[in-house]
């Protein structure tokens, strides 16, 4: 698959952006900034990895932000109110998320419903459920949480590669292997190419759809756990709009919104670009943090226009003729 060009452009945007920031703030080019970039965006990287699978398969998952919110509340209440050991709470919430994703995938497939509508319903459902459990922010003080937040790999130059950053990098790496080097991954691309054709080729489209949305919801759950580490609290209003941030990251990362093309590495770069803008604003100190949204919006437009232009060029070039033929 030719997945290099869009990713390469994303990479160039990131490098140029980083260079511009460094030119203005000499302190920018440090392991500290780089490590914080990973830590601050760990949950977004995890959830966007799942979103990459969904979008390449031709779908969309709007429920992930709410699932993160639900997860933080669930974990916080289970640990603080019910005294459940954190690891047991994590296992329970991941299984719950898997069931939730599987249900959405099954509804999408069995009733042939648009993923947009089904996951929109999932979004309201999960957000509503988290408000039912608690409307207030619940701090988590379990020992595991302080252990995890204290853990970090020290990098030369003062950077701290935190546990949640490492979890995110591991998820991205595993996601890349799953997407690019397994039958499952090939089927994801196939679904994005054409559902009907994929079914005709004997791929179990139904179980693929269920598994893809399951993956997305489980990764959203994992992102929720990571978010609870990051904030040391559970709050039903957390991660509002994260589904849109992650879709933006996926698209900026060069994945076709219509499916069939894209990569996990590109998505990571998309997340990092959004983080970079936020970091620049923090360095500047005078800009409103909402500039992040504005620049993200401009970048999104640019990348969608770029994809259309590249599609247009590919069409005009026309198909290649048959190769060399022996008589």
């Amino acid at each position: 698959m030719r997945r290099l060009p869009p990713v390469a452009i994303t990479a160039i945007v990131f490098v140029v952006g980083f260079a511009l920031c460094t030119a203005q703030f000499p302190n920018f080019a440090s392991t500290r900034v780089a490590a914080n970039l990973l830590t601050d965006n760990a949950f977004l990287g995890i959830v966007a990895t799942g979103m990459t699978f969904v979008i390449i398969s031709g779908g969309i998952d709007l429920s992930v932000g709410s699932v993160i919110g639900f997860t933080t509340v669930f974990v916080a209440l289970a640990i603080e109110r019910l005294g459940v050991p954190p690891l047991v709470a994590f296992a329970a919430i991941l299984m719950l998320c898997a069931a939730f994703g599987a249900a959405m995938g099954a509804i999408i497939h069995v009733f042939d419903m648009p993923p947009f509508i089904v996951t929109l319903a999932g979004m309201f459902l999960a957000r509503g459920a988290s408000f039912l459990m608690s409307t207030e922010s619940t701090p988590i003080s379990a020992p595991l949480y302080s252990t995890v937040s204290d853990f970090a790999l020290r990098l030369p130059g003062g950077g701290r590669l935190t546990a949640i950053a490492l979890i995110m990098l591991a998820v991205v790496a595993a996601g890349a292997v799953l997407l690019h080097f397994t039958r499952f991954g090939a089927n994801v691309y196939a679904l994005g190419g054409s559902r009907a054709t994929t079914a005709l080729m004997g791929i179990p489209v139904g179980s693929m759809t269920v598994r893809i949305y399951m993956l997305s919801s489980v990764l959203a759950g994992l992102a929720g756990i990571v978010f609870s580490f990051y904030t040391a609290a559970g709050y039903s209003l957390s991660a509002v709009g994260v589904e849109l941030d992650s879709i933006a990251a996926v698209v900026i990362g060069g994945t076709l919104l219509t499916g069939g093309q894209g990569s996990v590495v590109g998505t990571l770069l998309g997340v990092m670009i959004q983080g970079l803008i936020q970091t620049y604003i923090n360095f500047d100190g005078t800009l409103s943090s909402w500039w992040t949204k504005i620049v993200t919006g401009i970048l999104l437009f640019a990348f969608i226009a770029l994809q259309q232009a590249m599609l247009g060029i590919a069409r005009r070039a026309g198909p290649r003729k048959a190769g060399v033929l022996k008589p």
Partner: peptide, 14 residues
Amino acid sequence: LLLNLSVAQNLYLG
């Protein structure tokens, strides 16, 4: 077949 997949993937998908 699937135009977005490689020729090889198309031949052996699944």
